[in-house]
Design a protein around this nucleic acid. Structure first.
Lengths: 159, 159
DNA sequence: TCAACTTTGATTGCGCACAACTTAATTGTG
DNA sequence: CACAATTAAGTTGTGCGCAATCAAAGTTGA
């Protein structure tokens, strides 16, 4: 059996390993949040949406989707569930009736205080120091941006 | 308004940023794989399962779940779909009738060659060098292992 | 002015993920 | 042996995530 000794094989393996590590880590994290969020009856994506609303105030579905990188196919049902539970409210914009503005209810605001304890409790399982976390965050951001740029670039021009 | 000047706020923010970066990056990656895997009519999780079978040969659902960090609630329907399409076959183990051994069919083996082109095509969108990728992989692994260890440790003893 | 186009959000359909539960086989123990 | 406990898969129900499609509202230009 011939073995060609370039770094290619290794690099491709490295790529696969990074992708799988990412897939595993992402699921592990939502698992870490789950028991904490269960107390508030929230899922991790719902918590992310509320974080944005808590920090930035009311915004349209479109804006929220832009911040979270989620489309209406994901957001619409999720916001509907949050609205049913009285955490948020949706109403059509008056300037542009196509847009739907999402805003917190009193109940949604109140959740913020309960949720404020979550970061402390998650932080305990860090296993990485501040420098490593910063590097990790930046690497992930660079990778995501590159991938998203490639996707939009490739969309009209699939090689 | 009192502002306490410790590094705590920043670190908690950093944690949130890392978690969200992970969530985004994971989805961006499956998006990157999607058009390539569409040609083989595979999803990313299905591709991962086949990678394991290609590299390690037949194994039980349990073993596959251990490698991929997935439980039977996820694997059973997924393997059923792959079996329906004739990519894999499942049969009860003869030593232990509780176990189901998963193995590739001829068609599943053939897919391997078509899939062999995928890593090259994904690698193009790297945006990170080998060192950064290695660091990323190792950080993610450390983080995932810590989280999983904490979860199993906490399970019987929720603080 | 009004038909063509674009934008926004909702809907549909499918495939994960995962908790909770069920069934069947095996193991351990008195 | 009997029988409780454990283990392996499968099933059910819920909630994403996303492609594809749709309808309504707004914009544009001949």
């Amino acid at each position: 059996m011939m073995v060609v000794m370039t770094s290619q094989g290794g690099e491709l393996d490295l790529n696969k390993q990074v992708c799988f590590a990412l897939y595993r880590a992402s699921r592990a994290l939502t698992q870490l949040y789950r028991p904490l969020l269960d107390e508030l009856d929230l899922t991790y994506p719902q918590y992310l949406a509320l974080l944005v609303l808590w920090e930035r105030g009311p915004m349209t579905v479109r804006e929220l989707g832009h911040v979270l990188d989620l489309d209406s196919g994901t957001l619409s049902p999720m916001l509907k569930r949050l609205a049913t539970r009285g955490v948020i409210e949706r109403k059509r914009s008056e300037e542009d009736e196509r847009s739907v503005v999402v805003h917190l209810t009193e109940r949604g605001d109140a959740l913020r205080e309960q949720a404020s304890a979550i970061p402390d409790r998650v932080a305990g399982s860090a296993a990485l120091d501040v420098e490593q976390l910063t590097a990790l965050r930046d690497s992930l951001a660079a990778l995501t941006d590159a991938v998203n740029a490639r996707r939009t670039a490739t969309r009209g021009n699939p090689e």
